[in-house]
Design a protein around this nucleic acid. Structure first.
Ligand SMILES: [Mn+2]
Ligand SMILES: [Mn+2]
Ligand SMILES: [Zn+2]
Ligand SMILES: [Zn+2]
Lengths: 130, 130
DNA sequence: CATGCAGTCTAGACTAGTTCTAAACTGGGA
DNA sequence: TCCCAGTTTAGAACTAGTCTAGACTGCATG
């Protein structure tokens, strides 16, 4: 927990109890939760936290680069503590979003997109459990 | 216009004036419009069309496979008349979504995602005009 | 021509994700 | 103790999208 306080302080985020609960959950999760899922989780330990604070904290963590927000799901942004480059596989049955290591997929020469300078790219896969 | 009527009929869609206006625009567009952008466009030629009809028609066209709906933009689904496989490049300055031909990006061995059978994939690139 | 009917269209209500607002709270300095 | 900047809160507001209930359309039948 003190390590978490240090992380927030180092990134210019004043560590309040509410922010610590949000960060503790979203930085450790293995899934890609929506803001609402983060709220539900944080409410278990901090029953008075407001939706606005959860949104504010998530956006703050995104702005500081501690998490990423991704548009992989229809209807709601999802948050992702893995900010290193990786791909995503969406289970077409459950909707669960899985992380795929960067090296698992080999993308060649994506820079050749006429007239554009490519800054970033990632692969979105769809599939189901074998 | 008669060709359009035939396309709708062949796909089991009764061609009404409202549906024809929606289809005429969305099947011919070079962009990736949101439902609201389609509504604004159709209102120019069919000033009494309702939002419900535009949504219903777009969903009908998606269900019949004539267009695709894509989650590439935060906050709203976009529609795409190009249903063949291709990639997308999002201009980070303007937000405009460009189509990238399938052959322009070479993705190798994406099937190797442990435990999953990959049904489909595409690359999402971000960049800006050179 | 009159009636009926299935399918369609419309306005507006409703839901859900997200942001905004304004007031209350908090916790270190003067 | 008082102040003040920063934070939190409840709820309003906004927006994308769906749903509902009634009106409309146009063909089929008597
Ligand atoms: Mn933001
Ligand atoms: Mn749909
Ligand atoms: Zn991820
Ligand atoms: Zn496209």
């Amino acid at each position: 927990m003190n390590a978490l306080i240090d992380i927030l302080r180092k990134n210019g985020i004043q560590p309040t109890p509410q922010r610590l609960e949000v960060a503790k959950f979203v930085l450790a999760t293995q899934s890609h939760p929506t803001a609402d899922q983060v709220l539900k989780e944080v409410l278990k330990r901090c029953p008075t936290v407001s939706r606005a604070t959860v949104y504010n904290t998530l956006n703050l963590l995104v702005d500081k680069g501690l998490i990423a927000s991704r548009t992989l799901k229809e209807g709601a942004v999802v948050f992702d503590p893995r900010t290193q480059r990786h791909h995503h596989l969406i289970d077409t049955e459950t909707g669960i979003i899985h992380d795929i290591p960067w090296e698992s997929v080999d993308v060649r020469e994506p820079e050749i997109c006429e007239g554009f300078e490519v800054e970033d790219y990632h692969v979105v896969l769809r599939g189901r459990k074998k």
